[in-house]
Amino acid sequence: MKREKTKLKKTGLITTVLLLIVTAIQLFPLYWMFTFSLKSNKEIFGGNIIGLPENWEWDNYVKIFDKAHLGRYLFNSVVVTGFTIVFTLILSAMATYAIVRLKWKLSNAVYFIFLTGMMLSIHAVLLPLFVNMKPLLDTYWALIIPYVAFAMPTAILLMVGSLEALPKELEEAAFIDGANIYRVFWQIIMPLMKPILSTVAILTFLSSWNEMMLAIAFVSGEKYKTITVGVNDMVGKYSTKWGLIGAGLTIATIPTLVLYVFLSKNIQKSLAMGAVKG
């Protein structure tokens, strides 16, 4: 028994060292990005590449935020992602309600159609969408419409699983009290599905906030660019100014990181769930 204990302690030390090394590998690039965002080119090219900044150039943040219109791009990303999440949640919840609770012959067939979407990817439809959506290109809708379409299959899959597990008593009582079907959906089903709605919201947020291929291909005007594309342009424009680029990249990372700090548990749970069901 005693020997057993010492053995555990020993592996404990090696494991700790190993885990700390992996932590460093996973986090150091981000830490490094933050440090060079606060340096001037002079400092970086003068040899202080890895260390902490000597002069903390917070000015880099102010400059790049103004010059590269990052505020505008962040706003656009919030609009696109926000609408995508709202449409995805409402439409998927409605379809889920019809599939699980309403009584009609084709409900399984329709569910199956949505599930085929799990195998499709945005890449496969890039060109047809580019052709079909010509009039909408260079607007928020050019991104919102496809993001919603590709978020729905996972959303519906997760929601169907969760609604099937919910008891029907509350709905039945509401019907007996004379509520119509639309009120039952809005006032009983939606609140009951809150946990799964938040899971879907997180998954949809991550995929649309970070999406790049459509964002580059479908929006070229300054006015509607999202942050992923904006950051891309910024790097092209200031390619030699390390401090500015670092600051811009950090600014673009902050919204997701803040969200992660507050919701890390939920985010991890959502991604694990999305994967298990998929």
């Binding site: 309403l102 159609i113 499709l120 439809v125 047809p128 496809p146 919603v148 379409a149 729905m152 079907i181």
Partner: peptide, 24 residues
């Protein structure tokens, strides 16, 4: 009611995700 609940999502999905595959 069935149409009201299922058609918006179904039409959106078919037009934007499914149909373009055949177009491709």
């Amino acid at each position: 009611a069935i149409c009201f609940f299922v058609l918006p999502a179904l039409i959106w999905f078919c037009l934007i995700a499914l149909l373009p595959v055949f177009q491709s």
